[in-house]
Design a protein around this nucleic acid. Sequence first.
DNA 1: CGCAAACCTTCCAGTGGCTGGAAGGTTGTA
DNA 2: TACAACCTTCCAGCCACTGGAAGGTTTGCG
Lengths: 156, 156
Amino acid sequence: MSPPDNRGATKSATKSAAEEAQLTIGRLSKRCGVPAKTIRYYEEVGLLPEPRRASNGYRYYDQRAVHTLRFVGRARELGFPMEDIGELLTLWNNKRRKSKNVRAITQAHLKAIQDKIGMLESMQNTLQHLIHCCHGDDRPDCPILDELSAKEEDDE
Amino acid sequence: MSPPDNRGATKSATKSAAEEAQLTIGRLSKRCGVPAKTIRYYEEVGLLPEPRRASNGYRYYDQRAVHTLRFVGRARELGFPMEDIGELLTLWNNKRRKSKNVRAITQAHLKAIQDKIGMLESMQNTLQHLIHCCHGDDRPDCPILDELSAKEEDDE
DNA sequence: CGCAAACCTTCCAGTGGCTGGAAGGTTGTA
DNA sequence: TACAACCTTCCAGCCACTGGAAGGTTTGCG
């Protein structure tokens, strides 16, 4: 039932750096800025490997897990979908990778981002125009509603 | 078991325009550019009123439904969330509305859009920089992966 | 008139990326 | 020894659909 080793090594500098501090999920969470729930979720969907379990069932993580989770966290911040991140992790762990594969994933993701920006900017332009046209007072006349309910010619 | 009235009035100009052509969900779908599945969904979540049902169980829609669904469709194209659209519909149907209420909803939505654009542009900038730095060849060295795995100082 | 294609119906499940909460066991601290 | 603060699993929900199964109805054509 006892936790295995020096997981509380944060304050003691006596332990050598080579001895890996084992982290509970809560500590890993704080270190990487990723909620514990999310870490479990990443594990469940196969993005993160299953960590060692102590006899009490607790997950214990090593330093490598910290790096991996930070990698995932940063990739998520850049908006990469989980599927991409899985591939990026594989490439990251493969010393014989070709950087063009990494680049291709990134390029495709960038394009997806740009497409989204384009759509949002189109919405933005229309909305700004509508807001500009609307008096925004106590009267009912409203170009915004007029635009939303505008008739358009329909064939068929 | 017989459909109620002149739902096939598309070709005959003999019927007066005042007589409302009743549309099946499929026809309404085509007229408004919204999938039938989505129309049922909108009804289910209360965004659209329940239409008349013929004795065979089919939904039949009148001209008013066409206008409403187009309104919803356009609002969705502008990215309004369903909750907002519900409020916009209510205001649209209220002749004593105040246009400032419409404007406020639109303004808040615009801000949400702009926030999203800001985040995406930040991602875009980083991604462009990374892609620019990466050779994208057959060698493993990759600034993109370097960036994602960059160490940062951690307290605690 | 018969038959197949094209409709329509309901219900259930899945998408992405978490997030909240319940119910229960374990650990750390005063 | 009490109790907070962890940890565990499992289930449900978010948004706005979308897909598919299983079954009934209508339409168009030979």
